[in-house]
Design a protein around this nucleic acid. Structure first.
Lengths: 211, 211
DNA sequence: TAATGTGAATGCCTTCACAGCT
DNA sequence: AGCTGTGAAGGCATTCACATTA
């Protein structure tokens, strides 16, 4: 399990983009795709596409392009999404519930297998055929269900504390929707999505157009 | 209304992060903050913090640091969030409804003032005291309510078409949650958030730790 | 003394341009 | 001919280190 040469972070971040479009092409029954076509669809240069892909292997066929199914399978393996991931939803308020219903997650191999909250109004009730557990039961359930990842959809002031408990329970990756920076050991992967920040960035770009 | 020297995109993307933490410090009644403290809280180097801020002005006080309230006000003005923005929610399914209830948006000055969908089951009903309009009424309502931004929470296959209609109706910025690349004139700002992609990136980092 | 603002140096990412494969 | 893979060049972004200011 080695990474070969060092992979630029920016390239890694684009892999999902390639994968998404490859799935689209597969549905449209397109069998091969060139770096130029891929780039045009995703608004990237053809050279960047080729360079990105070669960080992970040699997938292309000169004169032909990339075979869609082959490249998709290869990238899935690289990303670790050739298998299913067992995910906990932590915080089952508005946002948490909506995310549970978001079809894109299961389509891409992420399966919610446990729900947690601390609100007594919620604990014990059932959503999507899953009981909402109290967070205090996390250590036990994490082991039983072999939880790997967690989506953190709790209020900002609770996020850091809950994140620590997730780490203690053996979770190795956290997708954090709370608008705060959580501090974690670097053995645990974290990705943070602050929804309000995205709108703010949008306002910024409208206010200050490029140039 | 000028931008002075050219601002690195990466620096602009971090402004929201600074703003978020400054709000936090204000609530905690901290009056000044140094670039080092700011950096520690956000996991950035002190030099980066200083350099980022000086792209937008000279806000610091040598020997003292930055005055929290002063810096926050300045950054808000820079980002265009010193005022309220009028936002449309387009697509009122699971995700759209959850986003409507997300408190972070209004806290930061984004106000949803109109809802649109095309589903006959939804059109006409009322959520959060707003009637759901049919998308066909967008041109008229966009003018009446002076809509500026839109949050796009529709299925992938509808997104591109709907985005074009938003542009025609005079929307100048789109926050796109659909997992597709939408093609827009460059006079219109766009930010794309693919939730499944974020989980995929998380799986990738877990699968392939740095090093 | 404590901390900013900033040229200069470094490092990372992207683009270029072409050799080589089909 | 068509298209990939890749060194080399170029362009951004980050870090360094210090003169400057309160």
């Amino acid at each position: 399990m080695s990474s070969g040469p060092t992979v630029p972070k920016a390239a890694a971040a684009r892999l999902s983009l390639y994968l998404r479009h490859l799935d689209h092409l597969l549905k449209a029954k397109q069998e091969t795709v060139s770096s130029r076509q891929l780039g045009e669809a995703l608004e990237l240069s053809d050279a960047k596409v080729r360079k990105d892909l070669t960080y992970f292997g040699q997938f292309g066929h000169p004169g032909v392009g990339y075979r869609v199914a082959e490249l998709r399978d290869a990238l899935r393996a690289v990303m670790g999404t050739h298998r299913t991931w067992r995910v906990a939803m932590v915080g089952v308020g508005n946002l948490g519930r909506a995310l549970l219903g978001y079809p894109g997650f299961s389509e891409r191999g992420f399966q919610f297998v446990a729900l947690f909250d601390t609100d007594p109004e919620l604990v014990g009730s059932v959503i999507r055929e899953m009981k909402i557990h109290h967070l205090d039961n996390l250590p036990q359930i994490a082991g039983e269900l072999r939880l790997e990842l967690a989506v953190l959809a709790v209020p900002a002031d609770a996020a850091d504390g809950v994140a620590r408990r997730l780490v203690k329970a053996g979770i190795v990756g956290i997708l954090n929707f709370a608008p705060v920076t959580v501090t974690l050991p670097k053995s645990v992967a974290e990705i943070s999505v602050d929804l309000a920040m995205q709108l703010e960035q949008l306002a910024f770009r409208v206010t200050r157009p490029p140039g």
